[in-house]
């Protein structure tokens, strides 16, 4: 079975309306295809569960995490990384059972389970001996 997992990596798209200025980051992700589901892991450090927005629509999975500034107005002695919102969007070729998608955010790592619909799950066909 071939899997089409076309990706649309983009920074905040023009169509998405943003009320707050600042930089948007592309989170690092892993995607694993198991027999019965796609598993997505994303690093979203600093994102509060309430500030995380995940949407699946028309084969598009969108992940958006808002990150409020953590340091206010400090002057950094060393500034090796930036802090900002996370955004990433994928097109998922597999048939996904949208009703059963589940997600969990723990220690800044998002885990999304995307169960395949029964139709695309591999099935073992029993062969009858003659």
């Amino acid at each position: 079975m071939t899997t089409e997992l076309a990706k649309k990596e983009q920074r905040a798209p023009v169509s998405a309306e943003r009320t707050r200025g600042g930089v948007t980051y592309n989170p690092r992700i892993d995607i694993l295809e198991a027999e019965d589901e796609l598993l997505l892991l994303a690093d979203l450090p600093g994102v509060e569960p309430a500030e995380l927005n995940i949407r699946y629509e028309n084969k598009e999975l969108m992940i958006e995490g808002k990150v409020a500034p953590r340091q206010g107005d400090v002057r950094y002695l060393y500034n090796e990384y930036g802090i900002g919102d996370f955004y990433r969007q994928f097109t998922i070729g597999e048939a996904i059972d949208a009703e059963k998608i589940s997600a969990e955010l723990k220690h800044g790592v998002l885990t999304v389970h995307l169960p395949k619909t029964d139709a695309v799950r591999p099935r073992r066909i029993p062969v009858q001996g003659g």
Binding site: D43, L44, P45, G46, R70, Q71, V74, R75, Y76, L77, Y78, N79, E80, Y81, I83, H107, G108, V109
Partner: peptide, 22 residues
């Protein structure tokens, strides 16, 4: 990890993003 470092009069603060760790 990448670090952000700042200070006030009493303290130095060091912050790092370490997703998945505790």
């Amino acid at each position: 990890p990448a670090l952000n470092v700042w200070e006030d009069e009493q303290n130095v603060y060091v912050e790092a993003e370490l997703p998945g760790l505790d």
